[in-house]
Design a protein around this nucleic acid. Structure first.
Lengths: 232, 232
DNA sequence: TTGATGCTTCGGCGCCGGCCGAACCATTGA
DNA sequence: TCAATGGTTCGGCCGGCGCCGAAGCATCAA
């Protein structure tokens, strides 16, 4: 393959209106589901599926399966840079994030919910962000985190049962789980479950019946502020 | 026109093999005749004519009639930049272990070439690295550099025409341009052009015919060592 | 289990656009 | 003026690819 052909193949991928529409949506830097991208581009799921796999093949996108959903995001900042420089030629700039309709539909679920056995939504992200920001949590490999020494102390002070969490040796300790509403990773795995358990045990949060939705109590709201430095 | 359509239209123009071939040839920053471009792309003159007028219409190319000939060149350095950033993506297609065939096949192009009107490849990177390492060049914002006081002196000593470079006020002075073969930024903008001009004027480098490839002369190799402290 | 949902694969249709031959226009040189 | 050369316009052919319906697989909820 020549340099020229490589150029034309990459450009041709971006040159289809449907694919360009998907790339534009993904310029917000977050991950979107295949159906989200299909709907946004105004095409059927099966057509979108073909487009998406071609772009993954060409290393424009990265895919990650989670449950029944498949999330796609831009493969690298270089891809975003190339798209931006093409948009610059057209005299336009990248559009900021545009929220999907589904995103607005369920504000409570979006705010806080359980994802299996750990916290997700804005609260789950707030906890995750707080831990990384304070240096308690750091990346370990592409899909995991690990607690730092200060993180161990912090969890102990909070009453998070790290001993039991570590005993579940067959399970990932601190896995990155992609949050569908926030489109960013939150903590899952044994640590995520232990943290969620702490929230329920200390009365910071309550499960709603027959729903994944979780209600943050007043004391929970205060705890987020005092322990995590977060206001939600 | 939406930004999405603008993106796809520009990308689609670059996405045709024949047009991509023309754009690649024009990446040398020089003007080429229509028949030259047609022959290089392996198509007939009438087909090329259609492609060329479409690219002029889209402001990718600028045309100038001269006698019976019609010369085409890239419309702006922004076009060159967009093409270069697409080529950077094309380099990531295969598995990281094996570079693309084109990458292996074209060692001279990788070593030194023009990117529109400035130097790219290993030599372009060596110059850029030398300037930053010696404190002559420092980052200014996310995508630009600026010359330090010592950098001004250094350029004067070298014979780089900074006055003319600064006069082109509509143009970025020292822009970061992502090098597709080295995967790191080199100097573009008015300063990049002035430096390249110095290399050609002092006989340190020579353009090869009908190619973006640049040959470093023996004196150029010595100059890289003495002035820039680089061995290539 | 059963049904619902998300995603993919397969097959066939339709059309957009790249291609060239032929003809035409413009500039040059004699 | 006439031929030669470079470039463009027009018309028609045809292949590639974007599209969807149908069907199939995987996951989740009850």
């Amino acid at each position: 393959m020549t340099t020229v052909n490589a150029l034309s193949e990459i450009a041709a991928l971006m040159g289809d209106p449907a694919r360009a529409s998907m790339l534009s949506l993904l310029m917000d830097g977050r991950a979107h589901t295949a159906s989200d991208l299909a709907h946004n581009a105004g095409i059927t799921a099966q057509t979108a599926s073909g487009h998406l796999s071609r772009m993954v093949e060409a290393n424009l996108l990265a895919a990650r399966a989670q449950g029944r959903n498949r999330f796609y995001r831009l493969a690298s900042s270089e891809v975003a840079h190339a798209i931006e420089s093409l948009m610059a030629l057209a005299g336009t700039r990248a559009t900021p994030a545009s929220k999907s309709a589904a995103w607005r539909r369920d504000p409570d679920l979006r705010f806080c919910r359980t994802c299996y056995d750990h916290l997700a939504g804005q609260v789950g992200i707030a906890v995750t962000d707080s831990l990384t920001r304070q240096g308690h949590l750091e990346p370990k490999g592409p899909r995991d985190w690990q607690l730092t020494q200060s993180g161990e102390l912090f969890c102990d002070k909070l009453g998070v049962d790290l001993g039991t969490a570590r005993e579940a040796s067959s399970r990932h300790f601190a896995r990155q789980c992609l949050d569908w509403s926030e489109r960013r990773p939150h903590i899952s795995g044994a640590l995520g479950a232990a943290i969620a358990d702490t929230f329920f045990r200390r009365g910071w949060a309550e499960r709603l019946r027959r729903s994944r939705t979780v209600r943050l109590t007043d004391s929970g709201r205060r705890a987020l502020g005092s322990h995590f430095g977060a206001t939600v």
